[in-house]
């Protein structure tokens, strides 16, 4: 069965959606992701939707669900790379995704996640030092 791959990067989970999701795939992603947050004790979830051309109310609800579910498991969700046409359409549709954090691209999303987690009063320790070298520099 088709699956959307979820990558673990230190304390974050990274999901890149490359295809237009049909419902089953999206529902699987929701449950897989929540499962992964639990098993890896991830502190942040980054969903890259830069390749997604259509987000309807169903997809929007999935994204909102993932954010709310992660939140009660103490993880922050950031959606990155939404296309302009998708953003305009979502607003017209009446779905401003108010509970979800957004960022322009993966890089800025990572930065936002780090800041959010730092604000929560903890300095995350990373498995991969090299990747997060600039962390000290930003503060």
């Amino acid at each position: 069965m088709e699956k959307i791959p979820i990558l673990k990067m230190g304390q974050f989970l990274l999901v890149t959606i490359q295809v237009d999701l049909y419902d089953r795939l999206a529902l699987n992603l929701e449950s897989d992701l929540v499962q992964m947050v639990s098993t890896t004790e991830a502190r942040g979830v980054l969903i890259d939707i830069s390749a997604v051309s259509i987000v309807d109310s169903f997809m929007g609800r999935i994204i909102g669900n993932i954010a709310s579910m992660s939140k009660i498991m103490d993880a922050v969700t950031v959606v990155v790379g939404m296309q302009p046409a998708v953003a305009i359409t979502l607003i017209e549709l009446g779905l401003p995704l108010s509970g979800v954090h957004t960022a322009l691209n993966v890089e800025k999303g990572m930065e936002l996640l780090k800041n959010k987690i730092l604000v929560n009063g903890e300095v995350p320790d990373y498995d991969d030092d090299e990747q997060y070298d600039n962390l000290d520099g930003t503060e």
């Binding site: 959606v79 990155v80 790379g81 939404m82 302009p84 998708v86 953003a87 305009i88 979502l90 607003i91 017209e92 401003p96 995704l97 957004t102 960022a103 322009l104 691209n105 800025k108 999303g109």
Partner: peptide, 12 residues
């Protein structure tokens, strides 16, 4: 307000 909300959705 729509423009502001759409900008936010993009992450800006």
């Amino acid at each position: 307000i729509k423009t502001v909300s759409a900008t936010r959705l993009m992450g800006a």
